[in-house]
Design a protein around this nucleic acid. Structure first.
Length: 561
RNA sequence: GCGCCUGUAGCUCAAUAGGAUAGAGCAACGGACUUCUAAUCCGUAGGCUGGGGGUUCGACUCCCUCCGGGCGCGCCA
């Protein structure tokens, strides 16, 4: 329900509880939070509260009796929004709202347009979401796609919920992995040129490495043969790195994901940001020396063991960069940091939390969202996805097979917390098995009706609400639809608070479902002109919400299908 | 062995943060197009929520325990 109605009703309940006659003369020391829910079962009213159940222990009185007294108290005055209030076992109070409350929601949607559903729970807080951040040693695969979709949708949802959001991709372009990449491509180059050399044991074996080597042969011929020196390796490294990053960026763009910032690990060293923070932590005794290496005391935050930040060789670890990187995030003014990682990195969470603590920031201001693995199903069988062997399905291929919209929706339709299955055959089928088309179809149907209305010279705009007789919208299905539209803001907020983009996805499916039912049952354009106008107004509002929610997920809203 | 995630209809997943009769989609079966797009709608069937204990007005949800699945436990990133 819209905010004002919710607040008003809470106040009404609160007043009623405070004014109610008390048998046991109990004072309410701590007033319980009044919780209003929208019941699943429409027989339980439009809104419901469990306040009487919560109060029964405080008042030492049966909840049904309390509920009864509260309802009597509420009924003493006209609230303007309530049709009636009922009690139900074992002590719920169910509220039925007046119809004009619903009509106001339609007016609100039509006047606010895409601003409808916007919330301010974020309080303009600066929040940084870092996601994907795949090593630039190979192309993106399907598993990364899930992180990308979740991160991107979350950013949009948080922004709608009133946060000041920035997104970032962290490029690990510093450590040994980059050297291995350079050596891998060089080795492939030499093999292709006919040299009898063995491929490095720990090298990257994917076919993209071969493709890179071929590309270099085309551009530079065989001029690197016999020049097995650091300069050559450096060239191969930089070439491969640049090319892979470009491809990653391209794949992400075609997936509808664009970052506000690409942060290079290398710059942490070139700008000398690592050493100072390590020294500081050393002074503050969060880091100590042992066996010739520097160790960070992550056991302070429940980690299994302390972790090395600078090796015996004097070379800093990846972890050292991460300390500096996260400090830098705070220094840039972000109050909340969200990192989205694949579930295989979960062992890293505790040490990072310990870092945040040691740096002196609130441990809860740093949150990690672990995205569980995706199992890809093709023809009923599981498709292998080993990263090193190079036998994974690329995000690029997935997009070209099923399209951006379907791929994104499939990643977003379930909780990031659960291991999901991605069935390629269902995703490809343009049938009713596919929930994306189901939602888009609802949108297209609405567009089609509005178009037909225009052809018959019946046009509806936001101003027309004043002249309309919305009380004509009284069928169960119409009220259901409006109720769902009214719930939009709440879904955004919950989705933002618990970082669950899938709530928006399932909301969309439910909204589409209600619309489809309504569509089948009633004709929007019908002989009664006033009824037609009111119904057009309703579906127009539905269209606005559908489009906005789809936008949050990064899924297109086609006008025709 | 320790840690994180997970176990709900034949399958894929929900369940409003502890709420009312555990719900959707697919698959199965039976219906609905002369009408704004049938990529839709309606109906039938399908459940000891992995097992057992506990907490309370009330548990899929929280706690303990056991069993199963995924992932991780480097001076790799």
């Amino acid at each position: 329900m819209n905010k004002k109605v919710n607040e008003d009703l809470k106040q009404i309940i609160k007043d009623a509880v405070q004014n109610m006659p008390r048998k046991n003369k109990v004072n309410i020391e701590k007033f319980p939070n009044i919780i209003l829910t929208t019941p699943k079962n429409s027989e339980h009213g439009h809104l419901s509260t469990n306040i009487a159940l919560q109060l029964q222990n405080i008042f030492k009185e049966k909840s049904m009796i309390l509920a009864n007294i509260i309802v009597q108290e509420i009924q003493k005055k006209d609230t303007g929004i309530l049709e009636k209030a009922e009690i139900a076992e074992p002590g719920f109070i169910n509220f039925y709202l007046k119809n004009n409350v619903f009509f106001q929601i339609l007016n609100e949607i039509m006047s606010k347009k895409e601003q409808y559903g916007k919330s301010n729970i974020g309080n303009n807080k600066k929040i940084l979401i870092e996601f994907v951040s795949v090593n630039p040693t190979g192309p993106l695969h399907v598993g990364h796609g899930k992180c990308a979709a979740v991160g991107d949708a979350l950013a949009k949802i948080l922004s709608k919920a009133g946060y000041q959001v920035s997104t970032e991709y962290y490029i690990n372009d510093h450590g040994r992995q980059m050297d291995i990449l350079g050596k891998s491509v060089f080795a492939r180059y030499r093999i292709l040129s006919g040299e009898d050399v063995s491929f490095p044991e720990n090298g990257y074996k994917g076919d993209y490495i071969t493709a890179l080597a071929k590309e270099i042969i085309e551009k530079h011929n065989y001029r690197f043969i016999g020049k097995n020196n650091t300069e050559t390796i450096q060239f191969f490294k930089e070439y491969a790195h640049k090319k892979i990053i470009t491809d990653i960026r391209k794949d992400l763009v075609s997936f509808g994901v664009e970052f506000d910032n690409w942060f290079s690990e290398e710059t942490l060293y070139s700008d000398d940001k690592v050493r100072p923070v390590i020294n500081r932590l050393l002074e503050e005794k969060h880091i100590y020396q042992q066996d010739g290496a520097l160790w960070f005391k992550s056991t302070a935050c429940g980690d299994e063991k302390d972790r090395v930040v600078v090796r015996e060789s004097g070379e800093p670890t990846y972890f050292a960069s991460d300390i500096a990187y996260h400090e830098d995030k705070y220094k840039r003014g972000f109050e909340t940091l969200i990192d989205i990682w694949g579930a295989d990195h979960h062992g890293y969470v505790k040490r990072m939390k310990a870092v945040i603590d040691a740096l002196g920031y609130d441990i809860d201001s740093f949150q990690v969202l672990l995205v569980q693995f995706v199992t890809l199903i093709k023809e009923g069988k599981i498709v292998g996805m080993s990263t090193r062997g190079g036998e994974f399905v690329r995000l690029k291929d997935l997009i070209s097979e099923v399209g951006k919209d379907v791929a994104r929706y499939f990643f977003l339709m379930h909780s990031h917390d659960s291991h999901t299955e991605f069935d390629l055959d269902i995703a490809k089928s343009q049938s009713m098995e596919n929930p994306v088309f189901y939602i888009q179809y609802a949108y297209a149907r609405i567009c089609s009706i509005i178009e037909k209305g225009k052809n018959e010279k019946i046009d509806i705009s936001e101003e027309s609400g004043i002249d309309l007789d919305l009380s004509l919208l009284k069928s169960k299905e119409e009220i259901e639809l409006i109720k769902k539209l009214a719930n939009y803001r709440k879904i955004i907020e919950r989705s933002a608070i618990y970082w669950r983009p899938y709530l928006v996805a399932s909301y969309l499916h439910e909204l589409a479902s209600i619309f489809h039912k309504y569509y089948t049952e009633y004709k929007v354009i019908n002989p009664d002109i006033n009824l037609t106008k009111s119904r057009l107004y309703l579906i127009h509002a539905t269209k606005i919400v559908l489009k906005d929610a789809l936008k949050l997920l990064g899924v297109e809203a086609p006008e025709k299908m």
